[in-house]
Design a protein around this nucleic acid. Structure first.
Length: 490
DNA sequence: GTATTCAACGTTGCGGTTGG
DNA sequence: CCAACCGCAACGTTGAATAC
């Protein structure tokens, strides 16, 4: 099979010539050796398929693993037979392969459209289109437009989905024509690299910018699991500054090296097992908490293409909550929960249930309150009749994450992080998600999204039970964390 | 006139959540 | 695994004000 330099390889080659060389000469170092995964990513999804409705009745080039020559031939035949719209149109020029999401014949020439599920234009997409333009113009196709189609997150759905409003189209031909010189220079340089020896390039910022390199495992094998690269909030440039000086382990860092207080704590704590417990600050935090006490956690989903009326692209739609309640310090812990029926918009029902459970003067605890607060604000805007109640919850939220964010409580197990994922096992190791049917948010969401497709009633019931149990554990973990904070200041 | 400091502003990274 | 949302905090940069 002939090896092509594809547009994704071009983009990766822009970051690192070594990766380009490895792709050609030692592709087995990448696992799995997926060929065109990148190319079909956006158009294979709902967003890509929907965008085709902007140019209906197109001919599709059927994707077959590895058979690029067939696709190129098929594309040429369609054009010769007068096709006006082609999806996944495939071309090659000077050994560079390009697949165009949507190719449309306009009055002045061919129009080239790249579909992205993002919400804006970036330089990477411009490079992407520049390579496609290079290949197509090399094939002597007259091009009148090269545009990016992406999600308009201002669009609000009411009734039937309005495809024209859902998408933004930005015409970029001027920028892309300006870019051609650059593309040609890069391509000739890349071709020289491919003919020569493997370039001796050390790891660096380019390994992750703008995308992680396929060969990271290979090039980074000498970097320990927990190293200077895991120091939180340390600039990438500073990390490599240290690395190029031969400093890799946390213990190699000089005492006088300029680190922020949090970073220094992470390092010192790791090396000496130092534990920080700022009793005064923790006590102040606890003094701000009062009864009755409600521990709240939402689960949401956020589709790029809105499915419910009144929602916009990527809006987080809550479908579940868990609420643990302590009426007083000595009261018995109670739990309330809600899980929407699958496939329908039950936000109003969720609001009714939630607001009926939480009284006006309650103290509400969440972990990372920015998330729950945003959900509450959006709900109150879209369901104004519940605004007062929702906003009163909003006002009374206290963030349980704060003491950890401020490093008033720190152990080395937190690895510089204050997320629940690290804080919980560090302080409440017995409270674990292991062994649960649903053990992370991603799985929870996928499970919920496909729930309405399952026919077996018993199975549906079991999954709903698993979802409830998962969400309940999140708020229970907060109860345990609070206990720990109270214990520790005694 | 130059050096130094610090506030204001801009950028990056991280936290929560998902979708593909 | 990556990208998307938003808000916040930390970090970095810049430029104006002040000191010398």
């Amino acid at each position: 099979m002939k090896a092509y330099l594809s547009k994704s390889k071009f983009l990766k080659g822009l970051q690192c010539h070594k990766s380009l060389w490895l792709h050609k000469h030692e592709p087995e170092l990448v696992s799995p050796p997926e060929e065109s995964q990148q190319a079909i990513f956006d158009t294979g999804t709902e967003v890509g398929l929907l965008a085709r409705n902007l140019f209906p009745d197109g001919k599709e080039i059927i994707f077959k693993e590895g058979s690029f020559t067939k696709k190129i031939k098929q594309t040429r035949e369609l054009i010769e037979n007068g096709a006006e719209t082609i999806y996944e149109a495939t071309f090659t020029h000077n050994n560079v392969l390009a697949m165009v999401d949507i190719l449309h014949k306009g009055i002045r020439g061919w129009e080239l459209y790249e579909v992205k599920s993002s919400t804006g234009v970036t330089d990477i997409y411009i490079s992407d289109l520049s390579v496609q333009y290079y290949v197509l113009s090399g094939c002597e196709l007259p091009i009148s437009k090269t545009s990016l189609i992406y999600i308009n997150n201002q669009y609000v759905k009411y009734g039937e989905l309005n495809i024209k409003e859902l998408f933004c189209i930005t015409e970029l031909i001027n920028k892309i024509e300006e870019n051609q010189g650059f593309v040609e220079d890069q391509l000739s340089e890349m071709n020289e690299i491919l003919m020569g020896k493997c370039p001796g390039i050390d790891i660096g910022n380019h390994c992750d910018t703008p995308y992680p390199c396929d060969f990271k495992d290979h090039c980074w094998s000498h970097v320990p699991e927990y190293s200077i690269f895991n120091i939180k909030r340390l600039n990438t440039s500073k990390k490599f500054e240290l690395y190029y000086k031969g400093i890799l382990a946390l213990s190699d860092i000089p005492d006088d090296y300029d680190l922020s207080s949090g970073q220094r704590l992470q390092v010192v704590s790791e090396l000496t097992n130092k534990v920080v417990i700022n009793k005064k600050a923790i006590k102040e935090f606890l003094d701000g908490i009062y009864y009755p006490l409600y521990f709240l956690d939402f689960e949401t989903f956020m589709p790029a293409v809105p499915i419910f009326d009144g929602t916009h692209p990527y809006q987080q739609v809550p479908f579940q909550y868990s609420l643990h309640v302590l009426e007083s310090k000595s009261a018995e812990l109670k739990n309330y929960e809600f899980l929407a029926k699958e496939g329908i918009d039950q936000r109003e029902e969720l609001i009714k249930r939630l607001t009926s459970k939480i009284p006006d003067k309650a103290c509400i605890l969440t972990y990372n309150m920015t998330f729950e607060k945003r959900i509450l604000r959006e709900l109150s805007e879209q369901f104004p009749s519940y605004k007062d109640k929702l906003m009163s919850i909003h006002e009374n939220i206290v963030d349980l994450m704060a003491p950890f964010q401020k490093k008033d409580y720190y152990t080395k197990e937190m690895k510089g992080s204050y997320s629940l994922k690290f804080v919980l096992p560090a302080l409440v190791p017995e409270c674990s998600y292991e062994g649960m049917a649903i053990s992370d948010g991603g799985v929870a969401m996928n499970t919920y999204a496909t729930l309405h497709l399952i026919e077996d009633k018993k199975e549906v019931e079991q999954i709903r039970k698993d979802l409830l149990e998962y969400c309940k554990l999140d708020t229970f973990a907060m109860v345990k964390l609070l206990n720990k904070l109270e214990e520790v200041i005694k």
